[in-house]
């Protein structure tokens, strides 16, 4: 009930207080391509990358903020700060990092940082105006982590767009993401190749500002 009330209040405030610049959080499970997308946007509009991308899980272990991005679309200017979050997970086993050639000590240190990163990402939910939920279209979308992220944004009344990423891969099924979350706007893109990125900017402008 309280969350319903909060949600309605947020919607009402939004009508009166349309922000010129939004704080846009990138949430999603581990290895969904959040940093690849942040890098793509930053490279396109600021001429620099912000984070390291790799196949090793939990590569992003700290919140990374990219400020004052101005994107020009067919509908005008879109001003935003991007906050690239560490991936949300319910488990971190240091042994999984050893498979990528890390020593025992390195793997344990990364595991400790990864757990802190997840906590930091959850805490940031209170500081974002809108969210891109970045999901991997080659994976089953109906996982508890995805449901928890989307459920928390709904409960807090934070507007969101679901980004069905990695559509350049042959096994991608962005339609399964749209079927799993029919109540939300889903934009299929490839952060790696830039496919459909213009549609994403337009969707942000239409639904999140």
């Amino acid at each position: 009930m309280l969350s319903e009330l909060k949600k309605s209040l947020r919607k009402l405030l939004k009508i009166f207080k349309r922000k010129k610049q939004i704080q846009l959080g990138f949430y999603g499970p581990v290895n969904a391509g959040k940093t690849t997308l942040a890098n793509r946007i930053s490279l396109d509009w600021l001429g620099k990358e912000v984070g390291t991308v790799s196949e090793v899980p939990h590569e992003t272990r700290h919140v990374q903020k990219i400020e004052n991005i101005v994107v020009t679309t067919n509908n005008g200017e879109l001003r935003m700060n991007i906050v690239d979050m560490p991936g949300i997970a319910t488990q971190v086993d240091y042994k999984s990092f050893k498979a990528f050639g890390m020593s025992e000590e390195e793997a344990k240190a990364r595991a400790r940082e990864a757990t802190k990163g997840v906590i930091e990402a959850i805490k940031w939910l209170d500081n974002v105006d809108a969210v891109l939920v970045v999901l991997d279209s080659t994976q089953d979308p109906y996982t508890q982590v995805n449901v928890t992220i989307i459920g928390n944004l709904e409960a807090r009344g934070i507007p969101m767009i679901i980004v069905a990423n990695k559509i350049d891969l042959p096994e991608a099924q962005p339609e399964s993401i749209a079927n799993a979350f029919p109540q939300h706007v889903v934009v299929p893109i490839s952060a790696a190749t830039g496919e459909n990125i213009e549609k994403l900017y337009e969707a942000i402008q239409e639904h999140l500002t």
Binding site: S3, Q91, K108, A111, I122, G151
Partner: peptide, 18 residues
């Protein structure tokens, strides 16, 4: 509740040991 789920994940992360 979704918020409780987030709290559960947060608390789990604090408890994880190697």
């Amino acid at each position: 509740e979704p918020q409780e789920e987030a709290e559960l994940i947060e608390a789990t992360m604090r408890e994880i040991d190697t």
